[in-house]
Simulated scan of single mutants.
Amino acid sequence: MATQQLVAACELLGLDALSPFDELIDSSTPPQSIYEANMEHLRRADGVIANLAPFRGAEPDTGTVFEVGVANAFGLPVVGYGVRGTYAQRLEAHQPLERVKGILRDVDDQVVEDFGLPLNLMLASSVQLAETAEQALQLLTQIWRDGDLAD
């Protein structure tokens, strides 16, 4: 879902969207100014929805993951969306995995988390998940309404 559509969805729910500046960025935009603007948005936010769909591989965008961590550190509720299957299943779609003595390993013989979770355990344990951006917004408003900031 495009940023403008998410902003409109927020407005329908009576929310003020603080969206990243992704569409306004070009090669002349100083990276530090983008970082500072996004950090300011997080300081002003009451909650975060995060697109955690795979981005250029099997994992979510690292910038989004960073922002999820910051939001958690700030005590904000976070709802992710766009995740299908388990972490191990997505990784296996990108490279062969092998079970060695009961432990799942990648082509570099590194251990692959195999907890049946949709994301790396740190993300999966720190966010609630919805299927779509619209559902994430609805879940976030329900979290606020119910006063339930924990999973």
Score class of each variant (00 low, 15 high):
A2Y: 11
T3D: 02
T3S: 10
T3I: 08
Q4P: 08
L6F: 06
V7F: 07
A9R: 05
A9I: 03
C10W: 03
L12A: 12
L12D: 13
L12V: 09
L15P: 00
A17C: 07
A17Y: 04
L18S: 04
L18A: 00
P20C: 05
P20E: 02
F21A: 12
D22R: 07
S27N: 12
Q32W: 15
Y35T: 15
N38M: 11
M39P: 06
R43Y: 14
R44K: 12
D46H: 15
D46W: 14
G47W: 06
A50T: 03
N51Q: 11
F55G: 01
G57E: 01
E59R: 02
P60F: 01
T62Y: 04
G63I: 05
E67S: 02
V70D: 01
A71E: 02
A73K: 15
F74K: 12
F74W: 09
L76Q: 03
V78I: 04
V78R: 01
V79F: 01
G80T: 00
Y81N: 01
E92K: 08
E92H: 07
A93P: 02
H94D: 09
H94Y: 13
L97C: 11
V100E: 11
G102Y: 06
R105H: 14
D106L: 05
V107P: 00
D108H: 13
V111S: 12
V111D: 13
V111P: 07
V112P: 04
D114A: 11
G116M: 10
L119G: 00
N120L: 10
N120K: 06
M122P: 01
L123C: 07
S125N: 15
S125L: 09
Q128T: 11
L129A: 03
L129M: 09
A130N: 08
E131H: 12
A133Q: 04
E134F: 07
Q135N: 13
L140S: 02
I143N: 02
D148R: 15
